[in-house]
Design a binder for these strands. Structure first.
Lengths: 145, 145
DNA sequence: CCCATTGGGTTTGATAACACAACTCACTCG
DNA sequence: CGAGTGAGTTGTGTTATCAAACCCAATGGG
C-alpha cells in the first residue's frame, strides 16, 4: 500500500493493525472473547470486514486461529505473544481516550494484580523516569522514500 | 460512524486518530515538522486526505493551527498537550513494530535525556511493576450497544 | 515585466474499502 | 422436521481514498 513516506516502524505497525476494526477485534480477544460471532457483536464490525481483518491478524502472527471442534468445524482466535505485547499500547490509547476524548467516567476499568485500579505509566527502561515529550529526541530517522 | 459495539475509550480514541495517516501526521508534528508540504512529503499521504485529517485533529484539539505569516497567509501545525500525551502510545507502537513486524534494525531511534537509547516500559502507576497481559483483569466493561 | 517557485490547499475522476442483508454449509437440539 | 448455532461468503450499493491536476497569493530571478 503505502510504499512512500518515511521508513518507520509506526507505519509498518499500522499496515497490520491500522485499519478500522483491527484494534477493536484485538481488544476483544485480549478481553477473553475467542469466537467470531462474539467479536462481531462486541465490536460492531460487519462480518465480512471482520473476517478479512482476523485473517490479516492471523497472517501477521498477532492472533492464532485454532480449531476447537471437528464436527462441525469450529474455530477460535487466541492472542499470541505479539498480541499480548500490544496490550500496553491499547491501554495507553484507552487512557488517552478517557482523558482527552471522552466526557464522563471511563467505561472500562482494569485492575492490576497489585490490587489497585490500573493506570499505565510509560517510563524509560533505563532510568525509570516517566517519558515526557520534551525529555527525548530522535537520534536517527528513517529516510523518506 | 460506529454507533454500535462496546462503549469504549479505545473506540472513541480511534474515531479521532484511527484513520489512515492521522497517526503518521501526528508523528511528524511530534518530530518537529510543522508545515503542510513537509508533513505531506514525509508521510506519503495525498494532499486532500492530509488536509482532511489535519482539520479533524485540529477540531479534536490534538493539534493547533497557527498563522505565522499574513501576506501571503501561511500556517503551521503545533502539538497540543493532547498530542504530547499520545507520544508514549506512538512510541509503544513503534517498538512493537520494531520487534514484531519489521525485519532488520529499527529505522528510527530516540534518545532519552538520561543519555541512553530510549526503550519504553509500561508500568503500573501504583506499584511500578511492568504490565503483563496476565497481571491484569477488567473489573468493569463498557456495555455493548 | 514575465516566468517559475513556494505554501497551502481544493477539484476531478478512477479505484478500493466498507456496510448491510441474505445466503451457505455442517451440524445439533427439541 | 424445523429451528438454531457457528463461521463465515456473496451480492449490491455507498462511501472513502488515491494521484494528478488545478487554483490563488505572493516572492524571487532575469
Amino acid at each position: 500500500m503505502a510504499a512512500r513516506g518515511r521508513e518507520c516502524s509506526i507505519a509498518d505497525a499500522l499496515e497490520v493493525v491500522g485499519e478500522r476494526w483491527s484494534l477493536l477485534a484485538l481488544r476483544e480477544v485480549l478481553l477473553g472473547e475467542r469466537r467470531f460471532n462474539q467479536i462481531a457483536e462486541n465490536t460492531g464490525a460487519s462480518r465480512d470486514i471482520l473476517a478479512a481483518r482476523l485473517r490479516k491478524l492471523v497472517d501477521a502472527g498477532v492472533l492464532e486461529k485454532r480449531q476447537y471442534e471437528d464436527h462441525p468445524p469450529r474455530f477460535e482466535y487466541l492472542p499470541t505473544e505479539s498480541a499480548k505485547a500490544l496490550q500496553p499500547v491499547l491501554l495507553g490509547l484507552m487512557q488517552w481516550g478517557d482523558r482527552f476524548i471522552r466526557q464522563g467516567p471511563p467505561p472500562t476499568v482494569y485492575e492490576h494484580d497489585c490490587g489497585e485500579e490500573l493506570r499505565v505509566n510509560s517510563v524509560c527502561a533505563h532510568c525509570g523516569e516517566p517519558i515526557a515529550s520534551r525529555g527525548l529526541h530522535a537520534v536517527r530517522l528513517g529516510a523518506v522514500r
